[in-house]
Design a protein around this nucleic acid. Structure first.
Length: 837
DNA sequence: ATCTGTGGCCACCAGC
DNA sequence: GCTGGTGGCCAC
């Protein structure tokens, strides 16, 4: 194996650099590696000087195809020669594929050609290059004499201890894998030096975002907020305004002209290894680039480069937070759904509790002072999104880069399916396996089960009919990482499910006619399994300990969270067409075994005399079980089913309506869990939510059956009060607004839902309704029955509709408690109430 | 331009 | 008026 060589070498030794990014530069045919040195807070560039494209062939294919032994040969070979090579080696290759269980199908000449093509295409996956050089993204390296040496990180002793039971029983292969993963994930999380950049541009046409390709309009402000304390706004046109003064929070830097401003901003951008923007890929950075060119800057003078749909910093890393916060996995798992609109305004309001400065009219009408404050706030919010909770987001990105083997800026840009793709491709290279083509996997066929919901591909999790009513003393058990555990325990992977071996055919999966390989551990099963083991054996138990130091606790929390994200998605991607290792039989087998597991467990509970009041996919609600009973079920599940069952929580009482995925539970400390009820959903009007919340507060105080009567009276008062307010028009439009997101492009709708109707009323001018926008509308008595709040009037509110909403929202709650909504209101019929005083 | 899955509830739309 | 379909939001 060739030694790593570098074109640009540094005389001094960098003690601990972190590889944050690697990219193949197609034009220069070179690989650019970027290392972050936390001590010097700089990015060091290392460029491969071999003059060859990075190697792209897996070890097995190279070893097996003796004729291709020298990889340089094939790289330099002409197209015609490659054709010959293919026909010469076709027999050999066929043999290899036939004997290699990891390589399914592909025995035709066409198949081989496709394989070679795929290898070539693979060149762009520079991860190969990294793998050949023994480098992993996010890990620490020592750079000595122009050589990059991985820094060995011994496993912390507590981790070794926690993993020991697993390491004892594991095969040498999985043992090594687990150790490697553990070492990487336990490396420290460095603080990254960075600066946020936000620009403001004049707009000649009102409400029109200037085109960054043309960059015709002037840059009138650039805000920068850095981790080193930099807080400034750059303005062009010094001297125009002598009254301009820096406020206390930040500094105003005025320049001679726009050109001088850009020059200075570029100089500062080059000072930082990481640049943060909100939508900088599509707007701020391309705008700066093209504007600079328009003003006569040469390419070399601009520290930026533009891709097709992203922008990067030549000697650093650019992270576009807009893309990061648009990522659903990040939104839900990392930030607990605290924001719903993917704008700087929406995200910062949800996460930081602060927002943009609002103003009327166009940006050009602001005074320089106001403009500076506005621009500063945007830059400050952008920076704060990476710094809150002790740099939580930056740390999360480092950990995700380590797990996914993907550069940090890519992690921040792409979705979870690509993280997992990168992770699994890396695993293929580790074991020297050929990465299969989609058609080879698809040859296994589709699903055999029928989905409950029309239009879905296969049957998913089981949801049980809840026992309607109030249940005291309920314990909730759930399977820890059920689907990843099933994938791990049952060896589920695209190449092992329905494997080609005759003697595996009797190795049937529980509850299925499909079989699984018993000769070989599946790649996906191994990769997902090792992450699951780490999370369940080490990170999850540790995150519950209070004895940890702050720093340690933060690291554990971040890693644990990141593992959860990846593990949760790893099952889903197997059933997603966009995933290159898409394999329906794997997704289906996972869900089928899941149903088998929960069904058997419920049967077991019933045998033991335990009442199961509810269950959904991987959770069981048990009524008043003894500690021994719980322990019994747990040990039975882990022994018989191979999945760990945890005691998740204990409810003082749970109230189920007759609906699935709809309940309310009160924990011993009075905390209330509300699941699926309309009163908690984000689109429900605040007016309804507030009354609902009051009712929930009242219920949370109930400790015994006898106290419900009192609670009922109190709820009655609250609901009546709310309804009186509605009737007397004392409720504001904002409180009456339904807030619904535009889920698709306006033209794509097959029917016109209410929120779109409302938005179209708004849409008199050229203003378009964008996907992701949240429309606030109220229901009115006059056609078409809805109006955006900005156009509506309190007088035209359809009170009857709101009473309906109130009723159905409360029915979900009151059903469970055995009351009627009308009873609560004190009227027998809706109309009766309506005509009451 | 971007994309992990299925199950379930609710309100409304559109066609009969 | 009934009913299947659509769209949104949520549980897991």
């Amino acid at each position: 194996m060739e030694k790593a060589s570098v074109l640009q070498s540094y005389s001094q030794t960098i003690p601990a650099s972190m590889l944050v990014s690697a990219a193949y530069d197609g034009d220069a045919e070179k690989v650019v590696l970027k290392f972050y040195d936390p001590r010097n807070q700089e990015i060091h560039l290392w460029i491969d000087d071999t003059g060859h494209k990075p190697y792209c062939y897996s070890k097995a294919s190279i070893q097996d195809l003796s004729i291709l032994k020298d990889r340089k040969d094939i790289i330099e070979m002409k197209k015609e020669q490659k054709k010959d090579l293919i026909s010469d080696t076709i027999i050999d290759v066929t043999k290899i594929i036939a004997t290699n269980p990891l390589a399914i199908g592909g025995t035709s000449e066409d198949g081989i050609r496709n394989q070679i093509d795929a290898w070539e295409a693979d060149i762009k996956y520079y991860e190969n290059y990294l793998y050949d050089k023994g480098l992993t993204v996010g890990a620490f390296y020592e750079v000595k004499d122009s050589k990059i040496i991985p820094l060995h990180n011994p496993l912390p002793s507590d981790m070794l201890e926690a993993l020991n039971p697993l390491l004892q029983v594991a095969s040498p292969e999985s043992k090594e894998r687990l150790r490697e993963q553990a070492e990487l994930l336990s490396q420290s999380l460095v603080t990254i030096k960075r600066v946020s950049v936000d620009i403001e541009v004049t707009s000649s046409v009102e409400d029109r975002i200037p085109n960054p390709r043309e960059a015709e309009e002037k840059v009138i402000a650039v805000g920068m907020v850095g981790s080193d304390g930099r807080k400034e706004v750059h303005l062009p046109d010094k001297g125009n305004d002598s009254s301009l003064q820096s406020p206390s929070e930040f500094e105003i830097v005025a320049h001679e002209d726009e050109k001088a401003l850009l020059r200075e901003v570029f100089r500062r951008i080059s000072d930082y290894p990481f640049i943060l923007t909100f939508n900088g890929d599509d707007f701020d950075l391309p705008y700066l680039y093209n504007r600079a060119k328009r003003l006569g800057f040469t390419k070399e003078e601009i520290p930026l480069s533009l891709g097709r749909d992203f922008a990067s910093v030549k000697k650093g890393v650019h992270i576009d937070l807009y893309k990061t916060f648009s990522n659903r996995s990040i939104q839900i798992y990392a930030f607990g759904n605290k924001y719903s609109e993917h704008t700087l305004k929406g995200v910062s309001k949800g996460i930081l509790g602060r927002s943009k400065i609002e103003f009327e009219g166009s940006i050009s009408s602001l005074s320089p002072q106001e403009l500076a404050s506005y621009c500063y706030r945007d830059a400050e919010l952008t920076f704060s999104l990476t710094s809150f909770s002790g740099d939580l987001l930056m740390k999360m990105l480092i950990v995700l880069a380590r797990i996914s083997k993907m550069p940090m800026d890519d992690v921040a840009r792409v979705g979870v399916s690509q993280w997992i793709r990168s992770m699994l491709y890396f695993e293929h290279r580790r074991v020297g396996a050929i990465i299969p083509r989609r058609s080879e996997i698809e040859a296994k066929g589709g699903a055999v089960s029928e989905a409950v919901i029309k239009g879905k591909k296969y049957r998913g999790g089981l949801v049980f009919e809840p026992n309607a009513g109030v249940h005291f003393d309920v314990s909730v058990l759930d399977f820890a990482s059920l689907y990843p555990s099933i994938i791990s325990v049952h060896n589920l992977s695209y190449e092992t499910v329905l494997c080609p071996h005759q003697d595996c055919r009797d190795n049937l999966l529980p509850g299925m006619k499909n079989w699984v390989c018993r000769k070989r551990k599946g790649i996906a099963s191994m990769a997902i399994g090792s992450l699951r083991d780490l999370r369940l054996q080490y990170y999850k138990p540790l995150s519950k300990k209070d004895s940890l130091e702050e720093d340690e606790k933060a690291l554990i929390g971040v890693v644990s969270q990141a593992l959860k994200v990846i593990l949760n998605a790893s099952y889903g991607v197997m059933g997603a067409e966009i995933f290159p290792l898409y394999c329906l039989p794997v997704a289906e087998a996972t869900a089928t075994i899941g149903r088998f597991v929960i069904t058997k467990t419920i049967e077991k509970c019933k045998e033991g005399g335990i009442t199961v009041v509810y269950g959904d996919t991987d959770s069981l609600f048990l009524k008043g079980p003894t500690d021994e009973q719980i322990a019994g079920v747990m040990s039975w599940a882990s022994k018989e089913l191979g999945v760990a069952l945890d005691l998740d929580k204990h409810y003082r009482f749970v109230a189920f309506s007759s609906r699935k995925k709809n309940y309310m539970g009160v924990l011993p400390d009075g905390t209330v869990d509300i699941k699926g009820l309309t009163g908690k959903k984000s689109h429900t009007p605040i007016f309804v939510k507030e009354i609902f919340q009051e009712a929930v507060n009242i219920l949370s105080k109930v400790k015994s059956e006898g106290e419900f009567g009192q609670a009922r009276e109190e709820i009655k008062t609250e609901v009546k009060k709310g309804y009186q307010n509605l009737k007397n028009k004392r409720v504001s439009l904002e409180h009456l607004a339904f807030n619904v997101m535009v889920g698709k492009e306006v033209g794509q709708y097959k029917s016109i839902p209410q929120h779109i109707k409302a938005a179209k009323l708004l849409d008199k001018g050229e203003r378009e309704i964008k996907m992701g926008d949240i429309i606030s509308y109220v229901k009115t008595k006059t056609p078409p029955g809805v109006k955006p709040i900005s156009l509506a009037n309190v007088e035209e509110i359809d009170q009857e509709k709101y009473l309906e909403t109130l009723r159905s929202t409360f029915d979900q709650l009151l059903d469970a408690l055995g009351y009627e909504f009308d009873e609560i209101l004190g009227a027998t019929k809706l109309e009766d109430f309506f005509w009451q005083s």
